[in-house]
Design a protein around this nucleic acid. Structure first.
Lengths: 149, 149
DNA sequence: ATTGCTGCAAAACGTTTGCACCTAT
DNA sequence: ATAGGTGCAAACGTTTTGCAGCAAT
């Protein structure tokens, strides 16, 4: 199903940048918003492929980038050479803690962080765009931690 | 030239892990410590190659990983699918601001950050290992910003 | 009619692996 | 002697690109 509000945001963004409104781009948007958590670009491509979609890998990559540009998605990188995306749609900003043994990702938000990026950017003479804060840690409960990495 | 103090740390670390003390590993250590800023594994390999070193790519990657494990280097990732390393040797901990236009990296340190990773890990039931905090921003002075990305 | 977008496949990129030889212990 | 490390090249997985045809404007 299509999320009309998100589709509208995307449509507006595309027009403003003289990007064309194509059905493929909305197929990618729909699939991306259906994910609960983080997903890789190739995951999404495979998923679409399984649904018999004809959208190509190149279009998936290109579109996810556009969706990140217009803030419908966030692009994340947890230091494993894999870009992950995550829906921003009606979710509050948060940061991530990653277990270095099992790869589990836990979201948290700490109010102390929120002002820092803006203040640091100002002080250094930059215009703040975004930030990433990742904590790498180990599950204390080793029974639950699958050590799969 | 060799930094004997760092070499000693590495030697001790290698022994403790039943890793062998090989000349190649110290070649990599020397080359890594000569870098002022951040460098990629492949950069270092090319650099060694140019110096007529016989150390192989595999050994460079392997050794940098070991050097990061024993905290002589830090492994960084600025979201561009490239692992960078940076000498920890007699430098204080710091975080990074990256210009999304020109790729310039500025180091800063904000005292407010230091306690957060530990506290968050504790609260969520994890054992803190490390953290990364990157701010993505734009140079305000567009004349200096080369927009090379 | 333009010009941007698409699918496809192939290339690029940093990184990892398999293997036979070598060497620190 | 024997595990572990090495160099080499080839494989890997993700991402990007080149190109000819297609479709939104």
């Amino acid at each position: 199903m299509r999320n009309e509000k998100a589709a509208e945001v995307f449509r507006t963004f595309l027009k403003r940048g003289k990007n064309r409104i194509t059905p493929e781009r909305f197929e990618v948007l729909d699939a991306a918003l259906e994910h609960d958590g983080h997903f890789g670009a190739d995951d999404l491509f495979i998923q679409l492929k399984n649904l018999k979609s004809k959208v190509s890998r190149a279009t998936v990559y290109n579109t996810l980038e556009l969706l990140a540009q217009c803030d419908l998605l966030s692009k994340r990188n947890f230091g494993d050479n894999l870009n992950r995306y995550e829906s921003n749609y009606k979710r509050q900003t948060h940061d991530h803690l990653i277990c270095v043994d099992c790869g589990k990702i836990v979201e948290f938000s700490d109010p102390r962080l929120s002002k820092i990026p803006q203040e640091v950017s100002d002080k250094l003479g930059f215009e703040m765009d975004s930030y990433s804060f990742n904590i790498f840690a180990r599950c204390k409960n080793q029974k639950e931690c699958k050590n799969r990495k």
